[in-house]
């Protein structure tokens, strides 16, 4: 074999790369677990979450870069899973409870996201634009509280400043008008039947593409036609 002075120079390609922190792609799930999700919808949503975790885990880059947090709203707002990459992520068991404080969930979720971005910044970890994914089959029961107006404003600001990508998904029975008010920059999408599995497959595939993108790339999203009514 031909002698290559560069290859044979003893250069160390591995060690600093191993130490340099992987840039993160935060993914915040805001999930409706109010009474109406009881039964089949909740079961399918839970199955979708498992698929999401498994498919992130199956991708060598995504499992190190995509970090998922789960916040639920049903009677109250709960942070069930703090931001964790797929290998450290245990799928939380979703439990049904009460009404739909959607506005409060959005506000608290975005607060938590901001706080997490600060942690990443402090530690010198780069990050991709975060994803916020809201799934509901109802409408906000806190529509007449300050939570809702604040939620609408903050999602709007976030879209304008491009500080995160917000997606609202309505399951059958969802108040699509309220979702449209909340997600004014990107129109909300209606879920086809209970295709949560396809939705999470799409989410995982899209985030795999983003987490693989070089620093000079912008990643176009693939069509959500497999799970969304278009």
């Amino acid at each position: 074999m031909e002698q290559n002075p560069f290859i044979n120079s003893g250069t160390d390609i591995a060690s600093t790369y191993a130490e340099n922190a992987e840039p993160r792609c935060p993914s915040l799930l805001l999930l409706d677990v109010s009474g109406s999700m009881q039964g089949e919808p909740l079961k399918e949503l839970q199955a979708g979450l498992e698929i999401y975790r498994d498919s992130l885990l199956a991708d060598s880059l995504a499992k190190k870069r995509v970090e998922v947090a789960v916040m639920t709203f049903g009677g109250r707002v709960d942070l069930l899973q703090t931001f964790a990459t797929a290998d450290a992520f245990t799928t939380p068991q979703l439990a049904i409870a009460g009404d739909t404080p959607m506005g409060q969930a959005v506000v608290e979720g975005l607060d938590y996201l901001e706080q997490h971005k600060q942690v990443l910044k402090t530690n010198g970890v780069g990050y991709y634009r975060p994803w916020v994914f809201l799934i509901t089959d109802g409408g906000p029961t806190d529509k007449h509280s300050s939570f809702w107006t604040q939620a609408v404003q903050r999602v709007k600001d976030g879209a304008m400043k491009k500080s995160f990508s917000f997606f609202a998904v309505g399951v059958e029975g969802a108040d699509m008008e309220c979702l449209a008010e909340l997600s004014s920059a990107r129109a909300p999408v209606a879920l086809k039947g209970l295709e949560f599995r396809k939705l999470f497959e799409w989410l995982s595939a899209s985030q795999q593409a983003v987490s693989r993108s070089a620093t000079t790339d912008e990643v176009p999203l693939t069509s959500p036609a497999g799970w969304a009514q278009v």
Partner: peptide, 14 residues
């Protein structure tokens, strides 16, 4: 592979 992010240094061994 060429920079060390932890202390903003050049990775000399590379």
């Amino acid at each position: 592979v060429a920079l060390r992010y932890a202390d903003n240094a050049v990775h000399e061994p590379f």
